[in-house]
């Protein structure tokens, strides 16, 4: 009795498994057959488009001497408004859960560990804009368990795929620059003027500066660069004739936390 029941359960179990696996295989093969595209005719194709700006490694040089409070506000406003970055207002807003793509800070916060004693008052307190460094060796990409954040091999931009992010925030722990923000709540109610050309995010995903990949694709420079009155220079770091390389050849520039080996693509002239 005991034995036959056990045998029955075993057989039943294997049958269910077999039927399940079989139907799954059939479903899968049907799926791949369809996804290969309708037969005949030219396959649909993707391309970069004619207007796209391309580079081997996009980079930015920030001339901190040209920065002031109102200019920084203008750049932040330009970036945050086109990217639908929420700006929570009111008393119940949690300022510690805010989202920032680009923001001004002071020298000692932008460059901790590189503090210079007896720094000129003007340098110590001038606003310095910080943003994602689009590191050549990004620790956030290494940490992400789903490749939701990744470095585009084409042009070195470190991107976020909001569709894939599971919100584990490992990338935020890994980023040594505090450049990443998490959507602690639905951002939409806090977006005043939604830009319909750019998606918003949903709660529970991480976001950050994308070097305006969507603008580069249509031949426009990043919004902050356009708003910067010449304080920010943008270009291809691998091209010796680019504006950024020319500037770097003329001026002494530093990067944030160079000792960590992440090789930021954003440079600062102090």
């Amino acid at each position: 009795m005991e034995n036959s029941r056990r045998r029955f359960l075993k057989n039943a179990g294997f049958s269910v498994l077999g039927v399940g696996a079989g139907s799954m295989l059939i479903g899968l093969s049907a799926h791949t057959a369809k996804a290969a595209g309708p037969d005949g005719g030219q396959r649909p194709q993707f391309s970069m488009g004619d207007k796209a700006m391309e580079a081997e490694r996009w980079g930015m040089v920030v001339d901190t001497r040209k920065l002031n409070d109102s200019l920084c506000r203008k750049m932040q406003e330009a970036c945050h408004s086109i990217h639908n970055v929420p700006e929570p207002v009111g008393e119940s807003a949690r300022r510690d859960q805010i989202i920032k793509w680009i923001w001004p800070t002071e020298f000692k916060h932008a460059f901790p560990g590189q503090e210079v004693e007896f720094l000129a008052e003007d340098v110590a307190h001038r606003p310095i804009v910080v943003l994602c460094n689009h590191c050549d060796n990004p620790p956030c990409v290494q940490a992400c368990p789903t490749k939701a954040t990744f470095k585009r091999e084409r042009d070195g931009i470190v991107m976020m795929d909001f569709h894939r992010c599971i919100g584990c925030r490992f990338c935020m722990a890994a980023c040594p620059f505090g450049s990443r923000s998490f959507n602690f709540r639905d951002p939409r109610p806090d977006i005043e003027d939604e830009n319909p050309d750019f998606p918003t995010r949903m709660r529970g995903v991480v976001e950050k500066c994308n070097f305006c990949a969507e603008r580069l694709a249509v031949g426009k420079k990043p919004a902050c660069v356009e708003a910067s009155d010449g304080a920010l220079t943008f270009g291809d770091l691998n091209d010796p004739d680019s504006d950024v390389r020319k500037l770097l050849a003329e001026q002494y520039a530093i990067r944030r936390k160079p000792n960590l080996g992440t090789f930021p693509s954003v440079f600062y002239i102090v």
Partner: peptide, 10 residues
């Protein structure tokens, strides 16, 4: 993921 923003249909 690939940054290709032009699609040519069949």
């Amino acid at each position: 993921r690939d940054g290709q923003r032009t699609y040519v249909a069949e």
